[in-house]
Design a binder for these strands. Structure first.
Lengths: 193, 193
DNA sequence: CGATCTATCTATAATCG
DNA sequence: TCGATTATAGATAGATC
């Protein structure tokens, strides 16, 4: 639109990319609003600029801040509570599974290294018999002989500081097919700010 | 667009509303895609038809289904877990507060009714002295004398079946100002399908 | 329902202040 | 960085199949 055909690729000129973003963002929000009104549809639209600035539109926005929470009746709250609990359970399950695998992997490596270590020591000792050189043993910090856990406990309060990292991908942009389970992960971050 | 100006209000004709929805939805998704590519922006767009059918676009979609969860590293999971926990805490706090208020309100009403009841009984007895009519006392089902709770316990597992109700509002649609805490409640429901 | 076809209406790229 | 302006590209309402 406007004076010249548009190539569908990143605008390299920073200035005009910024300008285009501003204009198209406005247009997009407007259209989102229009379709919601004209067609009685629920719409949620979230746009982040390259710099991370957030713009959004939503047909009804029952936020998670105190004031709007007031509006929710008990049944709604029970529903949300249930939903969040289920999500939390899944996240924990996955996290524990990953830690489990991680630990298992480390044990394996540890054993392998220990064996290697032993065989090296052995060879060294043999060498020492033929030479006069003394090479000190390497002492690795020793884990207590950890029993292999059947289930890893939940680590509810061990989260580190928020690292808003690496959620961008360069060329994976495309129209997604319809699915009811889709939700970009970074959206969740905005539940709590 | 097209042959005639558009009034920004719900299209009453069901057929053309449906058609318009289909056309504009396509356009909206396309524009969402374009701005994301042209301006290197992250975009998430979710549209529900009146009938609840879901359409969406997202620049990167790390879903919550098993497969994509695989991709998430521990740090990500810890973050999400923390976020969900915080959200859950707030939801519970609010729910408990509402129940608390509700109980308090009911107690108040109960007391008022009891007083009214007592005074009515009194009057009745006085009347009985002057007439021969016998009017039976009203027996209300009696609550045990409930102590006023300082804190209402959490009802983690009392949620009823999901009721996907009443999230629509007729005329509250408008472009929202930018905020970092916004997230429509109904989105959360889609975390767990 | 979708797809296609215009006539029109909108959005916006380029430009200037 | 912002608003206006304007020429055009693009979106789409209504109609037809």
């Amino acid at each position: 639109m406007g004076r010249g055909r548009v190539q569908l690729k990143r605008i390299e000129n920073k200035i005009s990319r910024q300008v285009t973003f501003s204009k198209r963002r406005t247009g997009l929000l407007k259209k989102a609003h229009e379709i919601s009104v004209l067609c009685d549809a629920d719409v949620a639209l979230i746009v982040f600029s390259t710099k991370g600035k957030l713009f959004e539109y939503a047909t009804h926005s029952r936020h998670y801040d105190g004031e709007d929470l007031e509006q929710l009746n008990l049944r709604e709250l029970q529903n949300v509570e249930q939903q969040l609990e289920t999500a939390l359970k899944r996240i924990r399950t996955k996290k524990n599974q990953l830690m489990h695998e991680s630990i298992s992997e480390l044990h394996k490596k540890e054993r392998a290294l220990q064996e290697r270590n032993n065989s090296l020591s052995k060879k060294l000792k043999e060498n020492e018999k033929t030479s006069e050189q003394q090479i000190p043993m390497l002492h690795l910090p020793q884990h207590p002989p950890q029993p292999y856990p059947c289930s890893v406990p939940s680590f509810a309060n061990t989260s580190g500081p928020f690292i808003g990292a690496a959620m961008r991908e360069e060329e994976s942009v495309q129209v997604q097919p319809v699915s009811t389970t889709m939700m970009p992960l970074w959206m969740i971050r905005h539940i709590n700010q």
